[in-house]
Amino acid sequence: MMTALTVKNLSKTFTMHLRDGVVLPVVENVNFHVQPGECVVLGGPSGAGKSSILKMVYGNYGVDAGSIVIQHHGAAVDLATADPRTVLTLRRDSIGYVSQFLRTVPRVSALDVVAEPLVIRGVDKGEAQDRARALLARLNLPERLWSLPPATFSGGEQQRVNIARGFITDHPVLLLDEPTASLDATNRAVVVAMIGEKKAQGVALLGIFHDEEVREAVADRILDVTAFAPELAA
């Protein structure tokens, strides 16, 4: 079985030019892999670089060194050195992402936000919206909110829109950044069940979960990110 995601020798620093060029190392020599059907959890204290690793895997953050290899349409693609168009294709077809905060766009309804990843893959809009409705219903988002833009939703409501959007496709790799942070127990359970279903479908999941209960329920392996802490400059 081909490894879905392989991260090798990944390193990142931030150079803060607005603060006299202070260099903030984030992570160094990150090495791990994720198999189809397994859920790897990034663990460690706040600020250790968990979110940054996730964002690098999604192409949202740049990479200083190393490689991020993903299986994409049967071929291995290194996201770390991929050009922008390739990254966009990867996101469209192979890597899904549930971010911590939903970035809202004026005038687009929650339903359309969720349906969008399917629509850009060519799925008929009506069908995409049907699947979006099913997911939103499962996540207990009140129906009266479906046609409204999410800008005025509560944190938990926005998070559920985000989750639905990330889970609606069949991407072989799914990245989850604190997906249950603002949810109540009922909805946490729904998400756990959804993750279980993805695993059964052979999706490779990489996630950050602060909630211990959820972590225990979904994690196949936990990776302590402090192992990749950069050596502090003298």
């Binding site: 931030f14 030019h17 607005l18 964002k55 949202n60 953050y61 740049g62 922008p84 990254v87 966009l88």
Partner: peptide, 13 residues
């Protein structure tokens, strides 16, 4: 580069 990359992880001063 990619729009969200340039806005979320800007390199140049």
């Amino acid at each position: 580069g990619l729009t969200d990359r340039v806005l979320d992880d800007p390199r140049e001063p």
